[in-house]
């Protein structure tokens, strides 16, 4: 690992000041797990890391309002997994975290770092996109809110500008909407996914009002599948054929990219099958707990 400088500011304000530089080799660090992997691999060689672990503890808090759950960007994945608020309001997130990496990584890795890393294989981005979540981004003297779907712009690429930091994630409470995430691994149960499928369904009686389907590990970033979503709009939840139809529409519209866990053709078939199964999971999970 190339030598670098490690700074540990004690406030967000101080951290934002240190990050306000044109030098792109200065990077923020949350838990540092993904960063260390990239540094060990030699694909990231920062001159200076700004560790956020000593800034105000408020940036790791999880809270709720009447219509949303707010998660501080420095909350560890374990803290989110075990949060009573998350388990009761957003059980699909708690379930997703249970199979994300392993206990030790979840104890250290943070939500903000996870999202900013923008690895297209990650589990949380498709789930957060399906749930309609947004990130609150701070920079020196400014704050803006952006849907998670617009945060990740490509392979390990985000729309964050230099000097900007994700400080909170806002997830709307789901109320009558129900959701599911399927992680398909091809080598071992704890492997990175060959495909991730997140769905969130909004129903009124037996009719689906809206469906959101977000797929990861198949493209250069997590993407929603609009054609499959359109098939479900207005459909009856008792119509099993419509789930098959939605899976076919998803496979038709998707343009998967091959990686070491599956060819493009294989991923297309995974999409066909697992979009349908994820929809079935969501319908079966109504009112379910993690």
């Amino acid at each position: 690992m190339r030598p670098f400088e490690l700074l540990e500011p004690s406030s967000l304000r101080e951290a934002l000041g240190l990050l306000d530089t044109a030098d792109e080799t200065v990077r923020p660090a949350g838990g540092g797990t993904a960063l260390m992997l990239m540094m060990k691999a030699g694909v990231l060689e920062p001159s200076r890391l700004i560790s956020l672990r000593r800034i105000e503890p408020a940036w790791a808090e999880i809270s709720q309002s009447a219509d949303a759950v707010e998660i501080g960007a420095l909350a560890t994945l374990s803290a989110i997994e075990h949060s009573g608020i998350v388990r009761s309001e957003l059980p699909v997130i708690a379930r997703t975290l249970r199979t994300l990496a392993n206990v030790r990584v979840r104890n250290v890795a943070t939500l903000g770092g996870n999202l900013a890393h923008a690895d297209p294989h990650m589990d949380l981005p498709p789930v957060l996109i399906a749930l309609g979540a947004s990130v609150i981004i701070a920079s020196r003297g400014a704050e803006r809110e952006l849907p998670v779907a617009e945060l990740i712009s490509g392979y390990y690429e985000t729309t964050l500008a230099s000097g900007e930091l994700i400080v909170r994630v806002r997830v709307p409470k789901q109320f009558a909407r129900f959701s599911a995430y399927r992680k398909i691994t091809t080598r071992s149960a704890d492997d990175w996914p060959a495909l991730g499928v997140a769905v969130a369904l909004d129903r009124e009686g037996p009719v689906l009002r809206e469906a959101r389907i977000a797929v990861s590990a198949a493209f250069d970033r997590p993407l929603r599948l609009a054609a499959a979503e359109a098939v479900l709009r207005g459909a009856s939840i008792d119509d099993e054929a419509v789930l098959i139809h939605a899976g076919d529409a998803a496979a038709d519209e998707a343009r998967p990219i091959a990686d070491e866990r599956g060819s493009a053709a294989y991923k297309r078939e995974l999409i066909r099958v697992h979009v349908r199964r994820a929809l079935r999971d969501a319908l079966d999970a109504q009112g379910g707990t993690p």
Binding site: L6, G32, T33, M36, L37, S51, S78, A101, N102, V103, R104, V105, N107, V108, D190
Partner: peptide, 21 residues
């Protein structure tokens, strides 16, 4: 951070020593 051979406890939580500065 995959194999667990470097597990240590920091403030009572298990972490991978190889991925911790």
């Amino acid at each position: 951070g995959l194999c667990g051979c470097c597990t240590v406890l920091v403030d009572g939580l298990a972490v991978s020593g190889c991925l911790y500065f």
